[in-house]
Design a protein around this nucleic acid. Sequence first.
DNA 1: CGCAGGGTTGATAGCCTTCAAGGTCTGTGG
DNA 2: CCACAGACCTTGAAGGCTATCAACCCTGCG
Lengths: 213, 213
Amino acid sequence: VTGLEPDAMLLLEQIGTTIDVPRDYEFYAEGDPAEYCYRVLNGCIRTVRSMEDGRRQVGQFPMRGDRFGFDALDTHCYGAEAVSNAVVRRYPRAMVDNMAENYPALARCLRELALGHLRATHDRIMLLGRKSASERVASFVLDMELRCGKGGGGRLELPMARLDIADHLNLTVETVCRVLTMLKKEHIVAIGRTTIEVRDRRALQALACDTRH
Amino acid sequence: VTGLEPDAMLLLEQIGTTIDVPRDYEFYAEGDPAEYCYRVLNGCIRTVRSMEDGRRQVGQFPMRGDRFGFDALDTHCYGAEAVSNAVVRRYPRAMVDNMAENYPALARCLRELALGHLRATHDRIMLLGRKSASERVASFVLDMELRCGKGGGGRLELPMARLDIADHLNLTVETVCRVLTMLKKEHIVAIGRTTIEVRDRRALQALACDTRH
DNA sequence: CGCAGGGTTGATAGCCTTCAAGGTCTGTGG
DNA sequence: CCACAGACCTTGAAGGCTATCAACCCTGCG
């Protein structure tokens, strides 16, 4: 989750292989046994989960440097698919666990990784449960800017579809569109089909933490 | 999270002390440095978090056998308070980490604990984000019955106030009341001020997974 | 050119919150 | 023992936010 790369994590590189996947590639499905963990080298991934009646939930959008599949116990409780063409590094789960038994520093890193994900998930509970549609979209845009922004107001890619964003924020496509349109009309952001540019970060931050009134 | 007690966790008992606390005792506040982890021997705890504007979120209700405070990195992102008089076992965090460095089996247990919490939190995201008020309350009652029920239809204690339940389910007190009243009128549960009895588990399960229509 | 998938915009409806008022229980002090 | 205060619980009415339903637009592609 953090940008720092702990040394112990480098141990994993011995057992990693690099693979190249096309758009919409399914790394694993919800419920699959956890055979591999991954780290994103390029592109964008989405982790997904759905209820019996079809309601879908997008968990995260791992991007360059992010790991996914590490939070499985024995089976994956989220599936993972490529949002865009992507390059990832893949580590066999059994070997990861094995190495963790022998290298306490690695075990510690893995635990901290899990705890970091846990904290992020708790933050998401606040976001999804307590915030309005505008606050959620604003938070999402700021989050994306923080993660992909080269720093300082450039235009950035939004590789995922509106539906993915909606399912990530627990909103409908229509609501996401409406909020984005509103942000555009107020000159807070500029929007292309797959790009977005933050014009007034101050206003966006105000919206992201805004109260309901 | 599971009922099983892995052997490696028993190692912690060497560094644990038992403490007795009154109702509303604050174990630690949100943002405090993580000095201790806890396991509940008796009573009920709540973990809480709040936003600047006062919106409050109750994370979990740890009860007999459950651990809390283990999911902190360096500081606690949730506070913890006693819902009722309680008895807990307390472990110094630094010593836990220290032992984990020396006992890989313990490190593994701790990681699995974190991953179990992570999965539970993801389930909560589905619950809070995608379910209606009735579904949430029904799920909550079933969950409480599973965790405190001596098995088979007895009356069980609901030590926490309606407000705690509401903040746990992202609802208002009024909505929780209305749903409970509805469940009572349909003879699905019997309700006392601090007790509840499941009369028709089938109906409750149907409600818990119900679709919106 | 026509089609399909995604995106945008508008009108309506439903669920839950908010606001308000009254009820019930518990503990405390006279 | 009783009365009272305060917290918690319950119930009712009105309003707001987002989902739903529907239509149209836009773009890429066969």
